[in-house]
Design a protein around this nucleic acid. Structure first.
Lengths: 177, 177
DNA sequence: CGAAAATAGTTGCATATGAAACTAAGTCAA
DNA sequence: TTGACTTAGTTTCATATGCAACTATTTTCG
């Protein structure tokens, strides 16, 4: 398994019709070898491992946890916009996460005197307690998933991911006239 | 198991952790550096690049494209179960993708004489034409995103991803039973 | 100034999702 | 056989999602 979808120019040889489980290649597309497919499978596992924790312990959704993670690290109040920017989540998603967290008493919204359109968000005491409980657990999950991997392997991995993102950004820029 | 939404553990922050230095800021969580966060950002870009194509050209959803990818590579008819197994998608998702593709004339369902519960699925001529159009385009996207990367870099990347998955599988197995 | 454009955030709508219940068919064992 | 269990696939339901339209402010600039 080195290169994804290596085109080996194989022409379909499909003499008759097998009764079941036919598996002949007509084209050189094989989902299991397709790089994006593997990325998805990988991502699914990673993300499930995390959400299992905050879902199970506090019934939180991904957007809520991410919002909490950002607010937990901040000292003053943040605007929702900053959370959007730093979480790379949709603004609608953030809006709803904030709403739900406020309802649950995890965060407080104060009017922003500097800008009447926005609010300053910060964790409540309860929210902070949840954060202090959850953050170490999630860092433990991270540690566990990276177990046995060297620093360099991890940074290489991230570097490759970044280069791929750059490639994609470049090509979408070319089309997005 | 505990009910959802119910913290089944102490929220209290009692030091069972490494010695602190007086400061109560013990949690050092930075979302932007958190490995799973980066994986998500990466995944989002990769997946968007793909869906942009089949979405734009044929209004297909991810599940439909994946179903098509598997059927396109097969010669005989496949059961939905096989698609579930090979796509790592939920069976409900596959069921609905199949339904929609049938409605659109992309695939055909015949009764399975060997097993009355299931059906044999295969692409219609129209579906195959779409597949033959789409597969090369998506392989091109894959090529583009991997541009400038060596084979070894890619295989290292995938190997790391696999090791992480193994770590996760191992730890969930430990908790599971 | 004040009208147009931009921005923060929310909401409406149409669709996507997955867990669990369900139907139908097959398998197993006595 | 028959009745319990398993499996394939669909449906139901409750919730998640994101685009676009919306309200309410602020900014821009003629």
């Amino acid at each position: 398994m080195s290169k994804p979808n290596t085109p080996d120019n194989e022409v379909a040889v499909d003499g008759d019709q097998p009764p079941e489980n036919g598996d002949r290649q007509e084209t050189d597309f094989v989902l299991e070898k397709f790089f994006p497919y593997r990325v998805r499978v990988f991502y699914t596992d990673v993300t499930n491992a995390l959400s299992e924790v905050y879902q199970r312990d506090y019934g939180m959704m991904p957007a809520e946890w991410r919002t909490m993670a950002i607010l937990g690290a901040a000292s003053g109040g943040l605007q929702a916009t900053e959370i959007v920017a730093r979480s790379s989540m949709d603004k609608v998603v953030v809006s709803r996460a904030v709403k739900r967290m406020e309802e649950r008493g995890f965060l407080m919204r104060e009017a922003n005197s500097a800008d009447g359109r926005s609010f300053l968000l910060q964790l409540s005491d309860e929210g902070r307690a949840v954060y202090e409980d959850l953050a170490p657990k999630l860092l433990a999950v991270e540690r566990k998933m990276l177990e046995g991997l060297g620093e360099d392997e991890i940074s290489d991995f991230l570097a490759v991911a970044q280069r791929i993102r750059n490639n994609l950004a470049a090509s979408s820029r070319k089309e997005g006239s």
